[in-house]
Each structure stands twice: as C-alpha cells, then as structure tokens.
Amino acid sequence: MTTKRSPEPFAWLLFSSGGMAAAMLIPVLLLLFGIVFPLGWLSAPSHDRLAAVLTHPVTLLVLFGLCVLALFHWAHRFRYTLYDGLQLRKAAPVIAVLCYGGAAVGSVIAAFVLIRAL
C-alpha cells in the first residue's frame, strides 16, 4: 500500500467550492433571468442599468470566479465519470490532463470574454 501524498486535495477543493458556488449562484440567476423577469413577476432592470452592473469590475470578478470554479467542478466530476463510469482508469493521466486542461482553457476563454466587456 503506497502512502504517497496525492495532488488530489487541490482538485477536490476546486471541485467542492465549484459545486458550492454553482449551487448558490446559478439557480438564482436562472430563476431571475429565465422565469421571474420574462414572466413579469418583477420588473426587469433596464438594459443600461444591467449593462452598468455587468461591466462593474466586482461583478466581472464574481462571474470569473463562478466560471473558473464551475469549470473545475465539471472537470473533476467528468474525470471520475470517465475513470469509474466508463472504466478508463488505464488512461488516467490523459483523462486528467484533458479534463483539468479543458477547465483551464475554459477559464482563459471566460477571462477573455469578461475582459472584453470592460
């Protein structure tokens, strides 16, 4: 039995904080912009006001954090889905690189998109 320290805790911290952030923020955003505003239960903010909120550096930072954490949450979960669900443990290093690499690329794209909104 090996007792080598594993890099897993860092992947798991990103995974669990991503799950937490996504669970707390995404349903609220979906509820507001997908149901509440379209059905007129609350009056929707004007375009100018929403644009002002969205281009505020703090909003961009929060959205960037949400994107990065949610992407790494996906990467970790998808990695284990491939490992255990599809029994691809032999390809573990390749899968890890693809999943976390994909999340890293996604994070860069998110940063690019958000910076353009400034």
């Binding site: 039995m1 090996t2 007792t3 080598k4 320290r5 594993s6 897993e8 805790p9 798991w12 255990d84």
Partner: peptide, 14 residues
C-alpha cells in the same frame, strides 16, 4: 494522516 490522506485513502472515494 499518511495513510488516510493518500490516493488509496479518502481521495479514492467518489
């Protein structure tokens, strides 16, 4: 800790 925090310890659990 060495055993529990290893890849075969808690980190194997999904």
């Amino acid at each position: 800790r060495d055993v529990l925090a290893s890849a075969e310890g808690v980190w194997a659990c999904t």
